[in-house]
């Protein structure tokens, strides 16, 4: 093979969404390819834990993640990972992950399963009713256009595009009670 995995990822970075089919795995300085990576599709990711921003390679087979390890080409971590980054695989395959939309009714003692359609309809209804009931257009002669009854928290675990959309969404509603992990 005339092209190493490192080269391939480098070349494919912008155009091929960083993913490719690897027949043989070329781990940094490791000649014997582990069997578990035979025939996997690989893509890159960035660790979701601390703010160092280490790179990882995610290997999937038949659409399912089978391995995650440090990206040797990443200039910050150069393949190494801490205990949390090394355990990232256990998020991809974990029985505690939520797979359904859950609802707890007022005074309810347990979760009930509902559909996305139901959930989105119910949430939009509550947002509208609360916004309409607590909206303040004008205060002491100043236009304030504020929704006084709704808060939004969180965002540090979201992607940039999601954070921006949330920031815009919240302001559109008139929310000023807008905070996240950066304050704590």
């Amino acid at each position: 093979m005339s092209i190493t995995r490192r080269d391939f990822l480098r070349l494919s970075g912008v155009t091929a969404a960083g993913a490719f089919f690897g027949g043989v795995s070329f781990l940094s300085g490791c000649k014997s390819a582990p069997d578990k990576l035979q025939g996997t599709r690989e893509s890159t990711t960035i660790c979701p834990y601390c703010g160092v921003g280490c790179g990882l390679i995610v290997s999937t087979r038949n659409g399912k993640i089978v391995n995650i390890e440090g990206d040797p080409d990443h200039p910050i971590n150069q393949g190494s990972l801490c205990s949390k980054g090394s355990a990232l695989f256990q998020i991809s395959d974990n029985p505690r992950r939520l797979s359904k939309v859950q609802y707890r009714k007022p005074y309810g003692t347990e979760w009930e399963e509902i559909s996305w359609e139901q959930a989105v309809k119910m949430i939009a209804r509550r947002v509208k009713d609360t916004r309409d009931a607590t909206f303040i257009e004008n205060e002491n002669g100043v236009t304030v256009n504020r929704c006084a009854g709704i808060a939004s928290l969180g965002g540090a675990a979201l992607d940039n595009e999601e954070c921006y959309a949330l920031s815009k969404f919240a302001r559109m509603l008139g929310i000023t009670y807008l905070e996240h992990q950066a304050r704590i």
Partner: peptide
């Protein structure tokens, strides 16, 4: 309402590290 979310490697998008590097992530599964 408890809404089930995709993990970092189950969607596409960027994250910015402490050094202000915005790095793109891909969807693997």
């Amino acid at each position: 309402f408890l809404l089930p979310a995709a993990a970092s490697f189950e969607k596409e998008g960027s994250v910015s590290n402490s050094g202000r590097w915005a790095q793109w992530r891909y969807k693997a599964q």
